Simulated scan of single mutants.
Amino acid sequence: MKKKALAILMVMISAVLLLAACGKDEKASGSSDKKGSGKTVTLKMAENQPDDYPTTIGDKAFAKLVEEKTDGRYKVEVYSGGQLGEETNTIEQVQLGSIDLARVNASPLSQFSKTIGVTSMPFLFTDEEEKWEKLNGEVGRELLDTLEESNMVGLAFYDSGERSFYDTKRPLKKPSDMKGLKIRVQNSEMSISVVEALGASATPMEYGEVYSSLQTGVIDGAENNFPSYYTSNHYEVAKHFTSNGYTGTPEVVIGSKKLWDSLSDEDKKAFQEAALESVDTQREAWAKLTEESKKGSRKSWKQNC
């Protein structure tokens, strides 16, 4: 009887050990399969410009490169036209991790990193070559890294051209012509300080509100690059464009810290490489649109003379 009980006990122990081993193998296999199973993690990227705008074109190039470099494990869906909110709102959502990625201007980011606000300083670089050598190099990397303190990760800078003033009232031939004008600016201390130093009243507001505000007289003018001035139809209501290119605040591709912490070191490298490699595509699209915008604006001005 004792031998029979012992035999049954040994069979039960063997069965338990066998099940444990199978469970361990199955778990390891499942972990391995997850990486090579073809499952894709889909990420959301916010963009407030239209689908065919240079920054959106850059976003899409970035998305394509991410998918290629991660062997399809990550897919980035670009939501253009402000579908996920205006810039300030999307920055906050990236901080919270409710949006994975976004393309925003460096100016509103200065609220979260005063260091990156240096890119808005007037006449900061001597020429385009110096500008992109710095932004794509170690200096740019150091600036982007300052965003980590605010739960964001900076991946790359995009081109946003040179910003100039335009208004509904009068040609701006000298600094004193700015006196008394209400000028829309991005929500940053640097932008506000520059406009107020010129004697105008700085009025921070979201980009999507500018056209109607110019039209109704809530503001007298704004400052932006030629493509934004043209594609947003601001030239229809603000006929006076002063081409001084006083600042060239770049755009920034950012990611949430939540997303970043979930990536392996290999995937982090893939995302960074994808962002940097997409810069050339974005800048080429920017140069093309700038020329088209200048021609379109000049044609409109002549027709209205």
Rank of each mutant, 00 (worst) to 15 (best):
I91V: 13
G208T: 11
S193I: 12
S212Q: 14
E162S: 13
D51Y: 13
K268Y: 01
D261G: 05
R283L: 07
S107F: 08
A270G: 05
I219N: 04
K39H: 13
F157L: 09
A222D: 11
K258S: 08
N89D: 15
G180E: 03
E284Q: 07
G245N: 11
E138D: 09
A197C: 11
N136C: 11
G58M: 01
T40E: 12
T126H: 05
K268A: 05
E92W: 01
G208P: 00
Y207M: 07
A63Y: 04
T216F: 09
E196N: 11
M1D: 15
K257R: 03
A46M: 08
K294L: 12
Q282N: 01
T249W: 04
D100H: 00
F125Q: 05
G208I: 06
T216A: 10
T42I: 10
L144N: 05
A106G: 15
E77D: 10
E266S: 14
V194M: 11
S31T: 15
M12E: 14
Q186L: 15
K3W: 10
Y53C: 02
T249Y: 06
K3M: 10
E26M: 15
R73G: 09
F271E: 01
T70D: 03
V118R: 09
K182R: 15
G30S: 14
E86P: 01
K69S: 12
K39V: 06
D127R: 07
V218P: 02
G97T: 00
S188Y: 12
N244G: 12
V94F: 02
Q215K: 11
S150R: 06
K44I: 01
S293R: 03
A222I: 00
E86V: 15
V210I: 14
N151Q: 05
M121E: 14
R73V: 12
T56L: 05
K294D: 01
T119G: 14
Y166A: 14
D265A: 14
F125Y: 15
K114I: 02
K268T: 02
A61M: 03
Y79L: 08
A275S: 00
P250T: 04
L84D: 09
L124A: 13
K288V: 10
Q95V: 03
A20R: 01
K60S: 03
E86I: 12
E148P: 06
I183C: 08
E209G: 02
I183W: 03
